[in-house]
Design a protein around this nucleic acid. Structure first.
Lengths: 219, 219
DNA sequence: TTTAAAATTTAGGCAAACCTAAATTTTAAA
DNA sequence: TTTAAAATTTAGGTTTGCCTAAATTTTAAA
């Protein structure tokens, strides 16, 4: 199925707003996200629905169909692979990649994206730590490990904690650290098993072994 | 000045048809080249003319203005850099690159193209042997040398000959070799100064020193 | 339960780029 | 030089995707 740039942007927005197609996205949310007038969104939702890419009802909102999901995942896959390429090979910074990736994600070439994937070594996460869907639109499996068991230099996503005390939560809060934050391990001190970490690609600090063993991360 | 994908395609077509802005391109030629109805071309030529990107008159045809030339050169620069990238780094073959480069050439990011240029080592010619305009839209200078003085492994463009005998011309003809053909030097035999060459990226053969000294090539 | 506010849709338009069919202009042959 | 053919333009339409303003529907407060 051929999809226009506009359609792909709507599907991507619905994917994001629906939190991976869990809760339906309504007109207003989509209009806000895309900075498009609700009347126009109404039009497009009807069209996407007629094309079988979403299920939509004005009261309940929009969810992606099987096919819509495929398109969205493919577009996100391209976006994140391009971001990875721009940062790793073209010296783009974190904040520069998005605008360009928004354009590149709509380039239509199966070979291009396969070769790009290969060139980058089949990455599972982009430089922001967001997961890259595979060629079938599947997100990488969720395999949490304690940060204390994680490998040096790698970038992880915080996906859970094993200590729910308010003291610990407050501690995390002082670093603006939450589920989905990225944690890159930049160093390890064997004598106390503490780790130097880079949080959200911005804040450098050191976490004790106690902290590290209470943070669940995935690749 | 912002230009649409469509406008860029028209300017590129006019550049190509006008042979680098030497002889004006007429409606019909542009319509054929872009597979667009002459009536539509008429509309667009008026628009481009109003925007100051071309000089157009129905009798004399279209030529690029200074500004139109800049846009065309920039688009061609992007196209050829992308082709080079696709072939060199993403294992695309000669015939696969065009379709994708047609899309990529319209991506708008100064940094992207600068970094791509750097990544590729500031190439002057693309894999087809076509010259890549520099950041200011200038084509590389024409510096012909005898093939016998050229460097191994490099790709050259045949740009002239110093022997115009029909025997020599016929000889070239058997290899479909003409001005604009590419010649890559794949080997050099010092004992007779003969060269192994790859012609037009397809035909492998060996040229004697005599042949090599009568072929003018440029980088 | 009524009613006001908020969300959504409908109606009517616009711009970009394309089209076909019908002029009109240019070129070239008789 | 006339005239027919070819090239080009104009006129009137289409589709996509957006807009504003005016309904309409839904939600939530009184």
């Amino acid at each position: 199925m051929h999809t226009s740039v506009t359609e792909e942007n709507y599907l991507k927005a619905i994917f994001a707003l629906s939190n991976g197609n869990l809760q339906a996205a309504n007109n207003q949310q989509i209009a806000d996200k895309l900075s498009i007038n609700p009347a126009s969104v109404s039009d497009m939702l009807r069209k996407l629905s007629e094309r079988g890419l979403i299920a939509y009802h004005r009261k309940t909102g929009a969810l992606l169909s099987e096919e819509g999901m495929q398109v969205a995942a493919k577009t996100i896959r391209k976006h994140r692979l391009w971001e990875t390429f721009l940062v790793q090979q073209l010296n783009f910074t974190w904040d520069e990649v998005h605008e360009v990736a928004e354009q590149l994600e709509h380039i239509d070439s199966e070979k291009l994206i396969q070769e790009m994937d290969k060139l980058l070594g089949y990455p599972k996460f982009d430089p922001h730590g967001d997961p890259i869907p595979d060629g079938n639109g599947q997100l990488p499996k969720y395999h949490p490990i304690a940060l204390s068991n994680a490998g040096i230099q790698k970038i992880y996503i915080l996906c859970g904690i094993t200590n729910h005390s308010s003291a610990f939560l407050q501690f995390l809060d002082t670093f603006s650290l939450g589920i989905g934050s990225t944690v890159q391990i930049t160093g390890f001190q064997p004598f106390d098993r503490s780790m130097s970490v880079l949080l959200n690609q911005t804040t450098s600090t050191v976490f004790s072994f106690t902290v590290c063993s209470n943070l669940l991360v995935m690749q």
